[in-house]
């Protein structure tokens, strides 16, 4: 397992995303690179934009990547305001393009692309986890 800890601020978004994408577990899964990249980008930005609205100096984002057998997992932890993004209403994918809201697709795509997603609030932390089954090097 790899554990990384970051200060989630907007100016560091690309640096944080790239650091996660360079972890051993992610690098070992080139066939799932797109899915993992998308999930990492969406969740890192969510934490940066919403977890610490008061701009708390000690705010953190901890990311744990792991691979056990064929199961890849990634967990995002922060101690910002309690919020379960998985409860966000899914966008209406039948709505015409000209009527669509500009936002709201990020979490929806994460849930669609990963095999399992879960959220819990524990010891003052938001813990958002995703799993991909059958993750193999190709």
């Amino acid at each position: 397992m790899t554990v990384l800890r970051f200060q989630p601020i907007r100016g560091k978004a690309e640096e944080i995303i790239n650091a996660i994408l360079r972890t051993e577990e992610v690098v070992s899964l080139p066939a799932q690179a797109y899915t993992i990249h998308l999930v990492v980008e969406e969740i890192v930005l969510n934490v940066i934009d919403y977890a610490y609205p008061a701009g708390e100096e000690n705010g953190y984002l901890e990311v744990r990547t792991d691979k056990v057998g064929k199961v890849f997992s990634i967990e995002f932890r922060d101690h910002g305001i309690p919020f379960n993004p998985l409860e966000q209403a899914a966008p209406d994918t039948d709505m015409p393009l000209e009527e669509r809201k500009i936002g709201g697709l990020g979490i929806f795509l994460c849930k669609e692309m990963m095999d399992e997603s879960s959220y819990r609030y524990e010891n003052g932390e938001n813990i958002l986890s995703f799993k991909l089954y059958g993750s193999e090097k190709e």
């Binding site: 797109y34 990249h37 998308l38 500009i102």
Partner: peptide, 24 residues
Amino acid sequence: TYISSSGIRTVIFAKQKLEKNPVI
């Protein structure tokens, strides 16, 4: 080779904000 929801937002923006409801 990659688009995220931020990228998709630009496509929706083009459709909705360029006045003539352009073909995408």
